[in-house]
C-alpha cells in the first residue's frame, strides 16, 4: 500500500515538473513539499530527523540518493559533484524517488501513524488517491 501511494505521489509530482528542470528536481520537489506541513506539525528538527532516517533506509536501494545532503536550513539538496550524481538520469530518478518516498512514508506511518500521514499527503497532493 505504501509503495503504491509513493508511486502515485511521485507520478503526480512528475507531471508538475517542467521539462527543462534538473533530473534531481523530482526528488527534491517531493521532499520540499513535505517540508512545510511537517515543520508546521512537528517542527523543522523533526522534519529533518524523519527525512534523514528515510534517506539512510533508502540509500542502499537507490544509488543516486547518495548525492543528496541537507543544507543548514533543513532543505535537501543535490550535490552534482558527488560520484553518485553521474548515475542520475530521467530513467533512474523516478524509481529512486519512489524508493525514498516509500521509506519516508514508512517512517511517518511508524511514528505518527497512518491517519496523520494520510492527512499530510492529502494536504500536499489533494489529487492523489490514497488507496
Amino acid at each position: 500500500m505504501v509503495e503504491g501511494l509513493a508511486r502515485r505521489v511521485v507520478a503526480d509530482e512528475a507531471q508538475r515538473i517542467p521539462p527543462t528542470a534538473h533530473d534531481a528536481d523530482l526528488i527534491l520537489g517531493v521532499c520540499d513539499k513535505m517540508h512545510p506541513p511537517l515543520s508546521r506539525l512537528a517542527g523543522t528538527i523533526s522534519y529533518r530527523a524523519l527525512l534523514s532516517r528515510a534517506l539512510v533506509l533508502a540509500k542502499p536501494k537507490a544509488q543516486t540518493l547518495a548525492a543528496l545532503r541537507f543544507e543548514s536550513d533543513g532543505h535537501l539538496m543535490f550535490d552534482p559533484e558527488h560520484p553518485a550524481a553521474e548515475f542520475l538520469n530521467r530513467d533512474t530518478v523516478r524509481q529512486d524517488a519512489i524508493v525514498l518516498v516509500t521509506e519516508f512514508l514508512n517512517v511517518l506511518m511508524l511514528l505518527i501513524g497512518e491517519g496523520l500521514t494520510v492527512q499530510i499527503i492529502r494536504q500536499v497532493w489533494p489529487e492523489v488517491k490514497i488507496k
Partner: peptide
C-alpha cells in the same frame, strides 16, 4: 515534549481522531 512523540502517544487514546486534523484540529509547531 517533541511533537512527533507527543502525537505518537496521544494517538493511543480513543479520543484522538486523526480525521479531525487540518480541518477541526490544527497542530502548529
Amino acid at each position: 515534549e517533541p511533537s512527533i512523540k507527543m502525537l505518537r502517544y496521544q494517538q493511543q487514546f480513543s479520543f484522538f481522531n486523526s480525521e479531525m486534523l487540518n480541518e477541526s484540529v490544527h497542530f502548529i509547531n
